[in-house]
Write a protein that binds this DNA or RNA. Structure first.
Length: 229
DNA sequence: GCGACAG
DNA sequence: ATCTTGTCGC
């Protein structure tokens, strides 16, 4: 696939991001005080063949409840700022195999912390009408933040042009902080506390960590099974 | 014009 | 993201 989706495609995508951001801005934050389940989704690639995995866990115990994986063909290249267009179709494919949506989704990537305030987490939340939080391992160009203290739970604001768009969150000592931002119907303070609650043994919250490994294993099963003679 | 850029 | 096993460190 071309590395460049083309100017008209990008312009269309940008317009869609504006619609998504405007819609999300018009919704009230959901009540997250009684969360029963949290979901996580991630995608692994073999070229443009996407392998997506969705994991749903009980919020309080962090016990796994459901898991599903599916393959699909990516129709949009990876372009920073347009991540949702590459990744979301694959996630939706895996989601079709999940009997019930979680009360909230953690998404690997940014949410409000985005040039158009419509990162993949915001985009997925609007599509599913489920509250979401964006969790990314790196900042996009244009974001600024000081490193939070090296203490689990420490935070520091992430800004774009002076506006606070998210927060760096130290989930593990001696490891780089995550960038947490509201996706759909969530606030930054709630997003931080939810991500911290879900993070136990790894840098990323458990639903994302499991989905990450599941997607990787699934990809190897699908694309390595035959060639190992 | 150059550089920067979630996964 | 992906190419890749064991290994060094907390």
């Amino acid at each position: 696939m071309r590395d460049d989706p083309g100017p008209s495609f990008r312009e269309e995508a940008r317009r869609l991001q504006e619609v998504v951001a405007r819609y999300a801005a018009g919704q009230e934050p959901a009540d997250t005080s009684g969360l029963r389940t949290v979901g996580g989704a991630d995608v692994s690639y073999e070229g443009d063949n996407a392998c997506a995995c969705v994991v749903v866990m009980e919020y309080g115990s962090l016990r796994e409840r459901t898991r599903a994986a599916a393959t699909s063909k990516a129709k949009f290249p990876y372009v920073p700022g347009y991540f949702a267009f590459r990744e979301i179709p694959a996630i939706l494919a895996a989601l079709r195999l999940v009997p019930e949506l979680p009360d909230l989704f953690l998404v690997h990537g940014h949410g409000y912390a985005h040039p158009k305030r419509a990162g993949i987490a915001t985009h997925l939340g609007v599509l599913l009408d489920v509250p979401t939080i964006g969790v990314a391992g790196n900042l996009l160009s244009g974001m600024e933040a000081d490193a939070p203290p090296d203490i689990r739970g420490a935070t520091s604001p992430v800004t774009m042009g002076g506006e606070v768009v998210g927060s760096l969150l130290r989930t593990c000592r001696n490891k780089a902080p995550l960038c947490v931002s509201p996706g759909f119907r969530t606030t930054l303070p709630e997003a931080i506390s939810i991500v911290l609650h879900c993070t136990t043994d790894h840098r990323f919250p458990e639903p994302l960590h499991l989905a990450d490994r599941c997607a990787g294993r699934f990809r190897k099963e699908v694309y390595r099974e035959n060639e190992k003679r």
